[in-house]
Design a protein around this nucleic acid. Structure first.
Length: 750
RNA sequence: UGGGGUAUCGCCAAGCGGUAAGGCAUUGGUUUUUGGUACCAAUAUUCGGGGGUUCGAAUCCCUCUACCCCAUCCA
């Protein structure tokens, strides 16, 4: 399984180790306004999974702040999904609506601090005032209402004295913020709607940005994990919690990429459209990626969980191949379910040399599945086989029955085709065959070899069943609309034939129909009179693949041409600086460019340069290391000074330390602000250049890695880095890498 | 166009300056009374492009490009 941890677990571990939190608390916070889908499963697996792995807990919280959309039936579906996936939400389900009173007090608090105000602009005005992504917004004229007035107005909003949209509570942040979410976000709106839980008690409801962070805080959540589209909201999340000056610890928000799967859709809107438009039979239509759909189709919770585990968690928008999911369900069912014989498209076969009947003992499981159990199958003169398993003019490589090729009936005898009976249109309606009496499975003495064994059922005892075959819902890999629906996503077979034990004995609800796929007794429509089976997934089929090899798209040739954009030209001053750097100081143009374009860097550089005259080495370190520390900061914020950097360059120049050690020293400097030489002495980092000290270390490394030595000598030059790395490691990084490099090559090549 | 993200194999995804993990898919082969399973093997001289720093860069610096998110009184 996946050994490596995802970035969220890494964060949790770090926070636990650093003592930031004593216990991890996560939450799964869906809005009860739709049915959960496999994307929710990913979130459930993540949040509950982290809580389980780090011995914390995970709350199930309904984020029910918009009464116009939410409903209790969705609450149930959400609870079902979590439960089905095997997670325990503990004592109770949480609701944001339970915190409405607390939230109201927090809002009053904000108003008292002058950090929130009642705005009375119209909806259109609010939009207008917000500005655009490139233009700052402007603050409402109502923003300067007094605390008292705001408090009073807010109270009246609560009392229901205003109509919807008349007033609104906003945070007072910054109307010109580059992050548009920070342009005085809306906190409370008036809504005279009955809430499915709170009833008519409230006529104002909190918005996501206000309610979510505080609900997290109230519940003692430590890690508030959400999807990427909330990245911009993180600033508001932090603002609310910070300005309220709440007693720590408080939660922090982290974002991950939502799940996408090809050939399907995941958005609530599109899913709703499919259901309400009647394109599918309901939320539990087995073609839907809804939890209810997978459940009805026959997927197991284990397979879904396993899938979530396999795909990992990261921040890159991605679309997982549906075959990954299919693999998971096959993999799960392979070792679990009984194998039975079912013929989907029956072709009659008469065994002309067989009379009477017999019962054959057949194991439910193949040799490689360590489970016990068997049933009896009836063999008699008239049987049915799959129409596909006979071919009069077989393509090359066809393993099944042909006029000249025998085949084994699974668990039964080998048969040979004697005659093909056709109707007037030339359609094959029956095969007359003979069996070999000494070829019975388990006691075969015939010595005959056949290429395959096929499924069959006896005409006498087979039961008729309905089988629903599902294919991908959309024909396009990245479907956009209803147009992209696959018209053949559902194929119903009314009269498939299955061996009787499946119906009479019901050994399980999920089966492998041998050579076809995994099937599930439909939990809704199945009855003894009319058994119905859903196809969960096909078996892998390397035969059909061989027949029609998929057109491999030549993505390699579609390699995109890189367009190089224009670099913004330097200002006159920058250009002058650049020229001086390149001509007078002999810096290379890239370094000169970096320095010249950054006013902070060039200032820092000239300061250091006045201390030591080593322009190139200094420039390199300033344009690389110092540049990193200076990103988004001012020189005054740095712990180290230009003089100290000059000192660092000096000890590099005189060979006291190597460039490698310099990085280490620099790191210390930027953390502690200590002098470089002090750090070097304190840590004993003076570099070792004496070959008589280094060579024995090299010999040692060589002796310990004979395999890699051989590989290196065979031409794998990449391994040089490995050896140098090892030597450096055993000297605590102090060996002079240039010398080590040289000596390693010498030692390896002798 | 401002801000926030992301880019490693056909699809996911590890990697945090020292030999480019793993899974799915694909392709061979072995076992097989399922064209299944299991097993073995192959598959990135290269990490979006270009420069730079370094003995050594997917990892650090600069720069360009592409894609995603943000202007609901939704979450």
């Amino acid at each position: 399984m996946n050994e490596s941890k995802d970035f969220l677990r890494l964060i949790v571990e770090e926070d636990l180790n650093s003592g930031k939190y004593k216990e991890v608390v996560t939450r799964f916070p869906p809005e009860p306004n739709g049915f959960p889908h496999i994307g929710h499963a990913k979130s459930i697996a993540l949040n509950f999974g982290i809580a389980r792995d780090y011995k914390g807990h995970c709350n199930l919280r309904m984020d029910d702040t918009d009464p116009s959309k939410e409903d209790t039936k969705y609450v149930q579906a959400l609870k079902d999904a979590v439960e089905w996936l095997g997670f325990d939400w503990g004592e109770n389900v949480y609701y944001t609506s339970d915190y409405f009173s607390k939230l109201y007090v927090y809002a009053q608090e904000l108003i008292k601090m002058g950090k929130a105000y009642v705005d009375s602009l119209s909806e259109e005005e609010i939009r207008e005032y917000r500005g655009t992504v490139t233009q700052p917004g402007k603050r409402s004229r109502y923003a300067q209402r007094s605390v008292e007035e705001n408090l009073e107005l807010f109270e009246k909003m609560k009392q229901g004295e205003f109509k919807d949209g008349e007033h609104i509570l906003r945070a007072k942040i910054d109307m010109s913020a580059a992050n548009m979410k920070m342009r005085d976000p809306l906190l409370y709106r008036i809504r005279h709607v009955k809430h499915f839980r709170a009833g008519d008690e409230w006529s104002i409801y909190p918005m996501y940005d206000f309610a979510h962070c505080l609900s997290d805080y109230i519940e003692g959540v430590t890690h508030s994990i959400c999807t990427l589209e909330f990245e911009n909201n993180r600033d508001v999340y932090n603002w609310v919690l910070d300005t309220l000056k709440l007693k720590p610890p408080r939660p922090y928000q982290h974002e991950f990429a939502r799940l996408g799967i090809n050939y399907t859709v995941m958005s609530k809107r599109k899913l709703l459209e499919l259901v309400e438009g009647g394109y599918v039979s309901g939320w539990d239509d087995p073609r839907l990626p809804s939890i209810a759909g997978y459940k009805r189709r026959g997927y197991t919770p284990e397979s879904i969980l396993n899938f979530c585990d396999q795909i990992g968690v990261a921040k890159a928008n991605s679309t997982v191949d549906i075959s990954q999911l299919e693999f998971c369900i096959r993999d799960d069912l392979n070792t679990k379910v009984p194998r039975v014989l079912c013929v989907l498209d029956p072709l009659k076969v008469s065994i002309v040399n067989y009379e009477g009947s017999e019962e054959i003992e057949a194991s439910y499981y193949p040799h490689d599945v360590p489970k016990e159990g068997s049933r009896k199958v009836l063999f008699s003169k008239e049987i049915y086989i799959e129409r596909d398993d006979f071919n009069e003019e077989p393509p090359s490589g066809y393993f099944r029955l042909t006029p000249t090729q025998d085949v084994r009936l699974r668990h039964g005898y080998i048969i040979t085709c004697k005659e093909v009976v056709k109707d007037t249109n030339g359609n094959i309606i029956e095969i007359k065959a003979e069996y070999y009496p000494d070829s019975k499975s388990g006691s075969d003495t015939s010595g005959r070899k056949v290429k395959s064994a096929i499924q069959w059922v006896s005409a006498k005892k087979a039961k008729e069943i309905e089988v629903r075959l599902y294919d991908r819902l959309y024909k396009n890999e990245a479907p956009e609309s209803i147009e992209d629906l696959n018209p053949n996503s559902l194929h119903v077979i009314q009269n498939a034939l299955i061996e009787s034990a499946v119906i009479d004995e019901k050994p399980d609800v999920r089966f492998q129909f041998e050579r076809q796929g995994y099937f599930y007794a439909d939990p809704v429509d199945y009855s003894d009179e009319k058994p119905v089976f859903n196809k969960i997934v096909s078996l892998k089929d390397s035969w059909s693949k061989k027949k029609k090899p998929q057109s491999r798209q030549n993505k390699a040739q579609a390699k995109k041409v890189q367009i190089d954009g224009e670099v913004t030209p330097m200002s006159e001053a920058e250009q002058a600086l650049f020229d001086r750097y390149t001509t007078k100081l002999h810096l290379n143009s890239e370094v000169a460019n970096t320095l010249a374009r950054d006013i902070n860097l060039s200032a820092f550089y000239s300061q250091a340069l006045s201390v030591i005259n080593s322009p190139v080495a200094l420039a390199n370190i300033v344009s690389n290391e110092v540049a990193r520390e200076l990103k988004g900061r001012e020189i005054s914020e740095l712990k180290f000074s230009a003089t100290q950097i000059a000192k660092l360059v000096k000890i590099i120049d005189d060979g006291t330390i190597s460039n490698k050690i310099a990085k280490q020293v620099f790191e210390q400097m930027s953390k502690t602000g200590k002098d470089p030489m002090w750090i070097v002495e304190q840590k004993g980092l003076i570099q070792i250049s004496d070959p008589s000290v280094i060579v024995p270390v090299i010999e040692d490394v060589i002796a310990k890695n004979p395999d890699n030595v051989a590989k290196f000598r065979a031409g794998n030059r990449k391994l040089l880095g490995f050896f140098v790395g090892q030597v450096l490691k055993s000297t605590g990084g102090k060996a002079n890498p240039q010398i080590v490099n040289k000596l390693v090559i010498e030692s390896l090549e002798k």
